[in-house]
Simulated scan of single mutants.
Amino acid sequence: MKLETVKNKEIIAILAKVLLISHQNNCESFNVFEEKGADMMSRRKLNATCIVVSLMMLLQGCSNIAITKDQQVEQAFEKHLSIYPVKSLEDFYDMEGFRDKEFDKDDKGTWVVSSKIAIQKDDSSPLVSKNIYLFFNKNNNKATGKFVLSKIYEDFSKNTENEYRIAYSNNKIELLDNAPKEVELFLKDYKFLVEEKSFKSLNNLPKISSRHNDNLPLYSINYLIKQDNEINKWLQQKYKFMKQDAIMNIENSGELSNSSLSNFYFKVRYKGKKEEIQYFRESINFKPSKGGY
């Protein structure tokens, strides 16, 4: 596994002192040769030996502060996720996101906050998904969006999709179109994961797998979250998900070292008996406003 050394000025300074001291100590043990009239070549060989020994000690010490790529990614995840839960989704108006070359100079950008609940009872049933998309435009401090209710069948010709306009203000989702009662009730008390729960320490969660690509950039880790995990319990209680262990995927597309917030994607997936599938997905993306948001 590829190792990357922690970049810490204080640690480097300490290690430099250790190198100096160890070099002096090691050389002192050989001073007896100089007293016996060792020639210049012997002294040079002796100094070279001292340096090699000291470097070996230094490298051995460095191995104790090396971290894996997963740990580096995880630490970056925790730093960015520490802002959640937010007091209100309207806090996104004041947040700065990761900007690439697609952004115009005068465009403050738009935060796209989306959430999805999808359930498929068995192989013969459709996958029913309820999707919320909110666009928090930093240029005018207005949030509009849409709610999409879809049913996906094995026979694609039977698929259905209904879309309703929504807005967000005063910490509530407002339905702008006429919609069935079930849609009104679903949106009335809907809450996003990022406004109610903390991710806490990811290091305490068992890791299942990971994939990272510095060139894209894209970083992804799958965790096992037990039934009594706080996020798992929140999903069980609020949205009636299965009471069992689940797999949580966290994905980030953005520079890990960048101080601004990057795009994040969260997905919690459950699989029950008779091929029943349930999953909750939420994403936070920063986009150029010229995309029509």
Results as ranks from 00 to 15, higher is better:
residue 57 M to E: 11
residue 127 L to N: 02
residue 22 S to V: 13
residue 59 L to V: 13
residue 44 R to M: 10
residue 55 L to K: 12
residue 88 S to F: 02
residue 47 N to Q: 10
residue 65 I to F: 15
residue 85 P to G: 07
residue 102 E to K: 12
residue 65 I to A: 06
residue 101 K to M: 14
residue 87 K to W: 00
residue 96 E to F: 04
residue 105 K to M: 10
residue 131 N to S: 05
residue 108 K to S: 06
residue 28 E to L: 12
residue 30 F to N: 10
residue 76 A to T: 05
residue 94 D to L: 06
residue 122 D to I: 05
residue 22 S to G: 08
residue 75 Q to M: 10
residue 121 K to L: 07
residue 49 T to P: 00
residue 74 E to L: 12
residue 60 Q to G: 15
residue 121 K to V: 07
residue 96 E to L: 05
residue 30 F to A: 09
residue 130 K to F: 04
residue 88 S to L: 01
residue 137 N to S: 05
residue 102 E to F: 13
residue 134 L to T: 00
residue 99 R to V: 08
residue 107 D to P: 06
residue 73 V to I: 10
residue 70 D to L: 05
residue 134 L to M: 03
residue 106 D to W: 07
residue 107 D to I: 05
residue 73 V to Q: 02
residue 59 L to R: 08
residue 70 D to G: 06
residue 58 L to E: 06
residue 101 K to A: 15
residue 54 S to F: 02
residue 36 K to Q: 14
residue 48 A to V: 11
residue 111 W to V: 01
residue 97 G to I: 01
residue 83 I to L: 06
residue 106 D to Q: 10
residue 25 N to G: 13
residue 92 F to P: 01
residue 86 V to G: 01
residue 45 K to C: 06
residue 31 N to G: 13
residue 85 P to S: 08
residue 43 R to S: 09
residue 123 D to P: 02
residue 24 Q to N: 11
residue 120 Q to K: 15
residue 63 S to I: 03
residue 73 V to M: 04
residue 99 R to G: 03
residue 111 W to R: 01
residue 95 M to G: 00
residue 99 R to S: 03
residue 131 N to K: 02
residue 100 D to A: 04
residue 19 L to C: 08
residue 67 I to C: 07
residue 101 K to C: 10
residue 20 L to N: 10
residue 34 E to R: 13
residue 24 Q to M: 14
residue 35 E to N: 09
residue 55 L to R: 11
residue 47 N to W: 04
residue 70 D to A: 12
residue 111 W to D: 01
residue 30 F to E: 10
residue 90 E to H: 05
residue 117 I to K: 01
residue 77 F to R: 02
residue 100 D to G: 05
residue 119 I to M: 01
residue 24 Q to T: 15
residue 91 D to A: 08
residue 132 I to V: 10
residue 109 G to Q: 03
residue 27 C to L: 13
residue 105 K to Q: 12
residue 125 S to T: 07
residue 61 G to A: 13
residue 65 I to Q: 09
residue 84 Y to N: 03
residue 67 I to G: 06
residue 74 E to V: 03
residue 46 L to S: 13
residue 27 C to Q: 12
residue 70 D to P: 03
residue 43 R to W: 07
residue 27 C to K: 11
residue 77 F to Y: 12
residue 19 L to H: 07
residue 25 N to E: 14
residue 103 F to V: 07
residue 131 N to E: 05
residue 30 F to W: 11
residue 103 F to Q: 06
residue 104 D to M: 12
residue 130 K to Q: 09
residue 38 A to G: 09
residue 139 N to D: 12
residue 95 M to P: 00
residue 66 A to I: 12
residue 88 S to T: 09
residue 29 S to Q: 15
residue 136 F to S: 00
residue 104 D to T: 11
residue 48 A to K: 14
residue 34 E to Y: 12
residue 84 Y to Q: 02
residue 37 G to Y: 07
residue 48 A to I: 11
residue 101 K to E: 15
residue 62 C to P: 00
residue 132 I to G: 00
residue 136 F to H: 01
residue 77 F to G: 03
residue 82 S to P: 03
residue 22 S to M: 08
residue 48 A to W: 10
residue 29 S to K: 15
residue 58 L to R: 02
residue 34 E to K: 14
